[in-house]
Structures are given as C-alpha cells and as structure tokens.
C-alpha cells in the first residue's frame, strides 16, 4: 500500500488511507461503482474486519481485488510472522453461501502477474477476487519482469439492460456506473434484476444466490490454474500452494535424487478448488501429501476428491515449512 501511495497518483489514480479496514473495503466498493478498478490490501485482523463488506461485494456484484498477506493467527497472533490460516476464511468467512475466486502466488513475479489476472477476473465476473499471499511471499526480494503491455479487461458498461439479472445460469449482467445516467439502485438486500428490494420472495432469493454461485462454478475450467511438476510417474504427489510450494518443489527434486517417485501439483488458484485436477491423480499416484501453514484447510478439500491416502502436514509456528521437513515427512509416509 505504501508503494501504491507513491505510484497511483502519478498514474492518475487515487490513494486514500481510510480509518480502518472496514472503511477501506467500503471505500473500494464505492469507488468501483463509479467505474474505477479498485483494490485494498490487508492481513490478519484487517481481513476479518472486511468480511461483511466482502459479502456485500459478492451480492451486489461489485468488482474489486483484495490482497491478503496471511500472517500467523488467530487474533493478533504473531503479527509479522507467516501463516496460511485464511484459506477457508476467504471462501466461507462471509455469512451466506458464496463462490469467490482466490489466487495463490508463490513469487514476486506472480504477485504482479496474478494481480493483473485478479483484476481481469473481477471485472469479467463482477465479483471480489482474492490474492491470497502470505508474509513470506510478501517480504520476498527477487527479480521480476514487468511487462510492457498487459491485457486489461474492460468493464461491460452497457446501459439499458438489467444490471442485476441475466437469463443464463451464471450469466454476468452489464454494470453501468454512477454518473452514467442509469439511476442505479444498488442494495445488499435481496433484489430483482433492476435492483428493487425483494426480501420476502423465496424464488427471487434462490435464483439470485444460485446465479452468483454459477458465475464461478460454470467457469471453473478457465479459472482453475495449476502447475504440474514431475507428475507422470509420481507415486507420491505433493499438493502445495503459496510459499510452501517453493519448498515442496525443492523437496520433490531432492527426493527424486534419492530415487523416490515424487511430483508436485501446485495450486495457483485456491477457489474454485482444483477438484478435477486432484481427482485426476487417482490411478497413478498412491498417496498425496499436503504441507500447509494451517491445520489441513486444503488437505480436507483434497480428501474430498482423491480416493487414495491423503496425509496432511500442518505447521503453525510462524515459520515457513523447511524443505528438510517436507523431505522427511514424505520419506516417512512413502
């Protein structure tokens, strides 16, 4: 955010430090409705404070990007140490049933590339997109390549159509903005396709919730993004994400050197979950190992889709998981 405070005004943007994280996400949503690409970044307690407004962004179909640099919780926890405990929170932390998109970078390069992707998905699908980094990635210093040209998704601001309804399951309505002369009616209460509150009609609520879910679920093939390393003959597959995946890749290489058939499935999206990609490991892989900086938030998802053995390894001590630990644990279960 400190870098944005420096750079955004120079690029014709606006930076404002609000009084708290609730205000920050609220201002982001207000700004987005004027047509601006809007984002905020936070960590730990600030992320918890944002939950109510994130549900608002989902329900009003407001594009925005939230960077969560995960730290060691719960509560104030170890404020400057690494954690990975917000994987479920970004999906289930809001009350109600929602689908969102969450990306997981493992490098400085991906902080950059996935930020661009996050904005493009947010604009295309009209929803909040989460860049679920962690403290280790957040404090990395390494080279990265900034591109001369990037593909930028322009918001569909067509006027005259219902801004909150679409005939197709999972359809994304156009989003004209404040000042476009559309007399927009935006509300976080259940609404019909023009925005009128309809808080007592079961059908209206059910249809809206379902379309919002299907916006993500029907596009899972274009959204889910994984990286496969040494999977072809792997008997043990490590499923990892974020900074932990760097250690997992190093461990897999070391184990290969020791003659063990180990591969890595790296999740670059956390949500929607890579269910098919995990299920596809069936048949070849005998077991899956999931190291993560929480107690099994992704391991539990993997278990739902992989029929063989799934062994989780959770470490929540404010430190990254060492390569040697992953090597040791994989050898132990293989």
């Amino acid at each position: 955010m400190e870098t944005l405070a420096e750079l955004l005004p120079r690029a014709g943007g606006v930076f404002v430090q609000m009084e708290d994280e609730i205000a920050s996400i609220s201002a982001v949503i207000g700004a987005s409705w004027t047509g601006a690409k809007a984002m905020t970044a936070t960590s730990g307690p600030g992320f918890s404070l944002m939950m109510e407004a994130l549900g608002y962004a989902v329900f009003t179909e407001t594009p925005c990007v939230i960077v969560d640099v995960q730290r060691a919780g719960p509560c104030t926890g170890q404020a400057t140490r690494v954690g990975g405990g917000d994987v479920m929170q970004c999906k289930w932390g809001m009350h109600g049933d929602v689908e969102i998109v969450a990306l997981s970078p493992w490098s400085v390069q991906e902080m950059y590339d996935l930020s661009v992707r996050a904005f493009n998905i947010a604009e295309r699908l009209r929803l909040p997109v989460f860049l679920m980094a962690d403290e280790a990635v957040g404090h990395l210093h390494e080279t990265a390549e900034f591109h001369e040209r990037i593909a930028v998704e322009q918001r569909d601001r067509r006027k005259g159509l219902p801004p909150f309804g679409h005939p197709d399951p999972g359809g994304v309505p156009p989003m004209p903005c404040f000042g476009d002369g559309e007399n927009l009616l935006v509300t976080g209460s259940t609404h019909d396709d023009r925005g009128y509150r309809k808080v007592e009609e079961p059908q209206v609520h059910a249809r809206l919730v379902e379309r919002l879910r299907q916006k993500v679920l029907l596009r899972r093939d274009e959204l889910v993004d994984v990286e496969r390393h040494m999977l072809d003959d792997a008997e043990t597959v490590i499923v990892a994400y974020g900074f932990t995946a760097r250690g997992a890749l190093a461990a897999a290489r070391e184990l290969r050197g020791r003659g063990r058939k180990v591969g890595l499935l790296r999740l670059r999206t956390l949500w929607p979950f890579a269910d098919k990609e995990v299920a596809a490991l069936d048949g070849r892989a005998r077991r899956v190992f999931v190291p993560e900086m929480n107690h099994g938030q992704v391991a539990g998802e993997v278990r739902k889709h992989f029929r063989g053995d799934v062994v989780g390894y959770g470490q929540t001590d404010g430190e990254v998981i060492p390569v040697a630990t992953i090597v040791r644990e994989v050898e132990r279960i293989s």
């Binding site: 606006v14 404002v16 609000m18 609730i22 205000a23 920050s24 609220s26 201002a27 982001v28 949503i29 207000g30 700004a31 987005s32 409705w33 004027t34 047509g35 601006a36 809007a38 404040f178 000042g179």
Partner: peptide
C-alpha cells in the same frame, strides 16, 4: 460514509 468517500474520491 465510507462507501460515499470512495465514490466521491474516485469520481
């Protein structure tokens, strides 16, 4: 007021 602040600053 926080939503309004974001909207006003952006436009």
């Amino acid at each position: 007021v926080a939503y309004a602040t974001g909207a006003k600053l952006a436009n």
